[in-house]
Simulated assay, not measured.
Amino acid sequence: MLFRSTAVAATVACFLALAGAASAQTTQAELKDRVAAYVQPSNAERTRVAVEQLTAVGFTPAIETFEGGGRNSGPMEGRNVVVLIPGTGGGAGGEILLTAHYDAVKLRDGTMSQGVVDNAGSVVAVIEAARALKANPPAHDVRLILFDQEELGLIGARKWIEAHGITQVAGVLNSDVAAYGDTMMYGQNNGAQSAWVTRAVQETCAARALQCVGYPTYPPSDDRAFSAAGAPVVSLGFQDQVGAHQMWLAFNGGESTGLAEGFVPRVFRTIHSAEDKVEVVEGETIRLTADTYEAVVRAMDAKLTADGK
């Protein structure tokens, strides 16, 4: 059995039904338009878009600044954008973090990548999931964090952990690269403390009859900052089924991947390049991503509650 108990299974099933009803208000076309809004000439402008979109759906976001930057960029102020969704449990049991980075890379010619696959699609999806969670709060508080400077070395996530610690972090759902396709990818390499979060993902995949692929080794994102600090965390993303399996082989197939010599999966020919453009984005995927992430957060909440946390 995937569910730990009949009671937990019933709770998750109920939450899944509520998730679908709560998130049906935003059309796929509107979600794609929201992703396109992040095509901006600077990351500072992307911050503005994130704040505007959060405000438009009823949040009052806080901007937490930090001193960041890298060896190539030099010192650079960063901005994490944060909102809190109070749960029905009055703050007991810690917080579930729902995270994605909103910054984009600079290309070799000095222009900004459109950064929609990596990672505005995720940003719009987690905002939409947060909107649905706000409308029908789970027991645990949920903190949505949009990180800056992930592309410079997970700096925003590391700075947030330095400032706040992980004492109140019950679990983390991080999203990176979620803009097209119907297959969810999830990492399994974030330590033993993350096993229960992985189970919440797997149970959600089964309950929703969703095509999901688990990666023993998964590409790094802001989840690595949390796993290094000892927090339970999973990193999720979406792409087409063939691409998801090709990426699995590239990272986990060893010397005999079955891939043609020199073959590069589509996703890695897209991100960090001029091909990461809004035409690639599928509104249906953003809708699916938002609904699935909401369901995973509710599954995490049910597991924590069942464990008395």
Rank of each mutant, 00 (worst) to 15 (best):
S122T: 07
S42P: 07
V267K: 04
A179R: 06
Q25I: 13
D222C: 02
T289I: 08
A100Q: 02
K277I: 03
G237N: 09
W160V: 02
H140K: 08
F238W: 13
Q211Y: 12
V280M: 09
G243L: 06
L259G: 04
V57K: 01
N80P: 06
E64P: 01
F59S: 08
A50P: 13
L97W: 11
L133T: 11
L304Y: 10
V35P: 03
A170F: 04
A228D: 12
C212H: 12
A295S: 14
V124E: 08
P75C: 00
A306T: 10
V297I: 14
P232Y: 04
D109W: 09
V296L: 04
Q202A: 13
G165E: 01
I155V: 14
A290M: 07
D182T: 15
K134N: 13
Y102A: 06
A195D: 13
D301E: 12
E30Y: 00
T11Y: 05
T198M: 04
A62I: 09
Q149A: 00
G243T: 09
D301T: 09
R4K: 11
G78A: 10
T47P: 10
T270S: 05
V281N: 00
I286F: 09
V177Q: 13
P41R: 04
V124H: 05
V297R: 04
E128M: 03
P220S: 15
G237K: 05
P219H: 13
Y215R: 09
A170P: 12
Q40D: 03
G110Q: 08
